[in-house]
Design a protein around this nucleic acid. Structure first.
Length: 543
DNA sequence: AGTGCCGGGGC
DNA sequence: GCCCCGGCACT
């Protein structure tokens, strides 16, 4: 039913026979390029459709509906031509169902109808590109005109589009618009799709014709209802096909920017939107710029971000030299499994995911101990502090937005090392690093960062130097099984909680060096440093 | 148990 | 600020 209606209203692109201007009786073949109505302002008399035909010689001529030999509307249909068309069309549909006479209006009237169909489509799409200016103006007018033509001369319900169809129209339009503007690479394949489409889709009962957008102003295709069927031929992605829509943009349903921001990334796949959505895959683009980590859903967006924010270029993408490409990476997400992917994506950094190793006392003080800042070990303190700074800077900004739940975990020393290149060992080695913590004199260096395996792109560089932290004493295995959120919280606690917030629990381990007591003994207590005498941290033999 | 040292109190 | 001490953590 559906396709039949669509076919009914297919006018543009149809090959018709027109009377020879010389009047010698030899008909000329032309392709309908536009339809308009005459006598529009005349209240009396019926409206008359005038068809602009692209003749074989390339010229454009206008003919009234009475003049051309085609089954348009209710006008005359030349017997043999009509029957020929009808026959071929029925064959094309593959259902043999008898059709109403006006069905033939869409199709070529030439004897080689089947071939003609493709030829017409190919020509039509080609034509729309060959004369941009002309086609632009024409396309704009076509939409309006066609709407009227349909309503006035063809008995077709106006409101044929379901909401799903409208949505699909938007999706398709968005997809095409983005494909046109994002990457030239995606242009070529869709053309092939379109070419094959003219055969296969029609044969499967799908009528994708220019008129399908005429009644509503949207481009659309009317395919099988189950768009999700992977085996379903792709909807027309041809840039050629959609160029008129883009140029005309009468109703302008899709906003370019909005689409670019939302679905543009999807066009990096050579897959139609429906299939991609079925896979629930989403591509995000992460800014790799230091201190940034911004994640956007579109390449254009991230490029714009990099260009404007990091490269300091305010110009449009035209003046881009492609340098932005080096500063972002693509992240593929399974939107099903990563339900909170977006929320967790930005904050997650290798530092967050680093394994935690318990403190060891081969050193009198773990390097991070200096964060206490009360033992007079200024070097340690400042060192740790300076280490934390790059971490903070290099971490995604969203890190600071994480609320530190489970802050209580940040009660014991922990080392959170990670490699700056982000190429550190994966989860498995993280576990090994934790296991080796007992013997790792430089445990922080031996420990490894935890790179989430869910996405390979997490291994991108975060431009952070190795750093040792004092923080949570959760067991290594715990940290391995933690959810990202927990790990984030843990890191936040590390970054934000005062070193001594938990009092004695964060008490630094006892120094192993000689102290006044040992050196001088109880007998010579007067020789002790003041701190030792006062049972404070020795200030003479600091380690 | 010995030791380091934090927190606190008295002066 | 000086001095001392209780008490905890660690070895």
């Amino acid at each position: 039913m559906h396709t039949r209606r669509l076919v009914k209203r297919s006018i543009l692109g149809s090959r018709v026979y027109a009377p020879s201007p010389t009047g010698d009786g030899a008909p000329l073949t032309g392709v309908v390029q536009a339809v308009k109505q005459e006598n529009r302002d005349v209240s009396t008399g019926p409206l008359r459709n005038v068809y602009t035909l692209l003749m074989q010689d390339g010229s454009l001529k206008e003919f009234s509906e009475d003049e051309i030999a085609v089954g348009f509307s209710q006008t005359t249909a030349k017997g043999p031509l009509k029957s020929s068309l009808k026959q071929s069309f029925c064959n094309g549909r593959g259902d043999g169902t008898p059709h109403q006479g006006q069905n033939g209006e869409t199709n070529s009237l030439s004897p080689d109808a089947v071939e003609g169909e493709r030829a017409v489509d190919g020509r039509r799409t080609g034509r729309t590109l060959e004369g941009p200016e002309r086609d632009h103006t024409r396309s704009v007018s076509l939409l309006d005109q066609k709407r009227k033509v349909v309503s006035s001369s063809i008995d077709v319900p106006h409101a044929r589009k379901s909401e799903e169809e409208v949505d699909m129209d938007k999706v398709t339009a968005a997809m095409v618009l983005t494909s046109l503007s994002s990457s030239p690479l995606v242009r070529s394949p869709p053309v092939k799709v379109s070419e094959g489409l003219n055969g296969s889709w029609k044969e499967s009962g799908v009528g994708f014709t220019p008129s399908s957008y005429s009644s509503s102003g949207y481009w659309s295709w009317s395919g099988p209802s189950d768009q999700s069927n992977p085996s379903t031929p792709s909807p027309p992605l041809s840039a050629d096909c959609f160029k008129p829509f883009r140029m005309s943009n009468v109703n302008g349903p899709p906003a370019d920017d909005a689409i670019d921001e939302q679905d543009g990334s999807s066009l990096l796949f050579d897959e139609p939107i429906p299939r991609k959505r079925k896979n629930s895959m989403k591509v995000m683009f992460k800014c790799l710029w230091k201190n940034c980590g911004k994640v956007l859903s579109t390449a254009a967006g991230i490029q714009r971000h990099i260009r404007t924010v990091h490269l300091g270029r305010n110009c449009d993408s035209d003046c881009s030299d492609g340098e932005e490409d080096f500063y972002y990476s693509e992240i593929k997400l399974n939107t099903d499994s990563v339900a909170d992917g977006l929320s967790s994506l930005s904050p997650v950094s290798p530092s967050v995911l680093s394994p935690i190793s318990p403190p060891h006392d081969h050193h009198r003080r773990p390097p991070a101990e200096g964060s206490n800042g009360t033992n007079g070990n200024k070097d340690n303190h400042s060192h740790t502090h300076s280490n934390s700074t790059p971490l903070s800077r290099s971490a995604p900004s969203a890190l600071y937005l994480i609320h530190a739940e489970h802050a209580y975990q940040a009660t014991a020393p922990v080392t959170i090392p990670f490699s700056g290149s982000g190429s550190g060992p994966g989860p498995g080695s993280a576990a090994s690093g934790s296991a080796a913590s007992g013997s790792a004199a430089s445990g922080s260096a031996a420990s490894t960062s935890f790179t989430p395996s869910s996405s390979s792109t997490f291994s991108i560089s975060w431009q952070s130097p190795p750093v040792t932290f004092t923080g949570t004493a959760a067991s290594p295995t715990h940290s391995r099984t933690q959810s990202f959120g927990e790990q984030r919280s843990q890191t936040i606690a590390v970054l934000s909680s005062p070193p001594r917030a938990t009092g004695s629990l964060s008490r630094k381990s006892r120094g192993e060096g000689k102290k006044c007591r040992k050196v001088y003994g109880m007998e010579n207590r007067d020789m002790w440093c003041t701190a030792c005498r006062w049972k404070k941290a020795c200030q003479r033999f600091t380690d």
